[in-house]
Simulated scan of single mutants.
Amino acid sequence: MADSHEAKSNDETTHFGYKTVKADDKQKMVADVFHSVAGKYDLMNDVMSFGVHRLWKRYTIEMSGVRTGNRVLDIAGGTGDLSYAFAKRVGPEGQVVLADINASMLQVGRDRLADRGIAGNLEVVQANAEALPFADNEFDVVTIAFGLRNVTHKDIALADMYRVLKPGGRLLVLEFSKPTHNLLNKAYDFYSFKALPIMGRLITQDADSYQYLAESIRKHPDQETLKNLMTDAGFDRVTYHNLTGGIVALHRGVKA
């Protein structure tokens, strides 16, 4: 993976929402967003999705095929929704690693999971998705929910997720995507750019972070493009399932 990182120029630019920024600066800018909203993150998710994000995550868990004794890596796991469900499924014989690059989000997640009685089979690790601090072939399942769009070099991150999976292991990417119907797309645009920043200001006193959220969703690869990125990273049998009319999509791939 080192060669891939070295190949990236210091002058490389990327997108932070609709802004063009230096690639080296994006990680800190995204970190600032999540430091700002960490304390109200779960409440805001419930409000802005009308609670539907819980159904999207439940579907991801069912599609993961996680069983007793499995090792699961939950990247960008934030406040721990998926990690909690996975920890219950793998049991004391298994292990779940809750990983996030953002210390504020990890602290909220660690506290929430401890309050809910999850401890023995859970590890919390601060980690960059582009340089995962784990051995090759270590996990049965890797998930990343609503985090890939914030990663600067998605190709590098997907390749590293492939590396840490065991042969036959599965990657599941749950992410905002491209609505499949034009009218829904127009309504979603109106909601995202008009309502979300207002909700952010009222609930988290931070409209700018939710303006970034709306913009980052639009810059994220659509369903077919992400499928191709996963295939290029080495994944086999890559499929995706549109949820809520394609507002969200769940991609799934297998390590051969």
Rank of each mutant, 00 (worst) to 15 (best):
P197M: 14
T60R: 01
S64I: 10
F235K: 05
Q126Y: 07
A31R: 11
A85M: 14
G39V: 04
G234E: 05
L243W: 08
Y240H: 14
L98W: 02
L202A: 12
K194D: 13
T60P: 03
G245Y: 14
L172N: 04
V96K: 07
K8P: 03
A157T: 07
F139V: 03
Q211E: 14
I203M: 00
A233W: 03
Y240P: 11
K194C: 15
L226I: 07
A256V: 12
E12Q: 15
P197I: 14
A129E: 06
V238Y: 05
N121W: 03
G65I: 08
P133H: 06
D206C: 05
L55V: 13
R116T: 00
S9L: 15
P92W: 13
F134W: 09
H153W: 01
N10D: 15
W56L: 05
L202N: 08
M44G: 01
I118E: 04
D222H: 11
S177W: 00
H241L: 08
N182R: 09
I203P: 01
N150L: 08
A195Q: 13
D236E: 12
L122H: 02
A119V: 07
P92Y: 09
N185T: 05
R54L: 13
N185E: 08
M44T: 11
I217G: 13
Q107H: 13
V142I: 04
G94Q: 01
I118W: 06
G253N: 06
N45Q: 04
I217M: 12
G246S: 02
L229Y: 06
V47G: 02
G77T: 05
G168M: 07
A249F: 02
F190Y: 11
Q126A: 11
T20K: 14
N121E: 00
A114G: 09
D206S: 00
T204L: 11
V97L: 07
Y41S: 01
S216Q: 08
A195I: 15
K88I: 01
D189H: 15
L202F: 10
I61K: 03
F176W: 10
A23Q: 11
A131P: 06
Y240A: 13
G168W: 03
N182W: 10
I75V: 15
R170Q: 13
A214R: 03
T143E: 09
H15P: 08
H251N: 09
I118R: 00
F190W: 13
K57P: 02
G69W: 06
I144D: 05
M44I: 12
W56V: 05
Q95S: 05
N128T: 10
G39C: 00
I118H: 08
D236Y: 09
Y210Q: 10
L122V: 04
G39S: 11
A7F: 12
V97P: 03
A127R: 00
V238H: 04
A214L: 12
G109R: 02
D24Q: 13
M161P: 02
V164I: 11
F86M: 06
T79F: 06
K22F: 14
E175I: 04
F134T: 05
D100W: 01
Y191T: 06
F176C: 12
G80Q: 02
T180V: 10
M199Y: 15
G168P: 04
L196R: 00
P197S: 08
N121V: 01
G109C: 09
F139L: 09
S209P: 06
G147T: 06
G200W: 01
K22G: 14
D160E: 11
G168L: 04
Y188K: 05
S177C: 03
H220E: 07
Q223G: 06
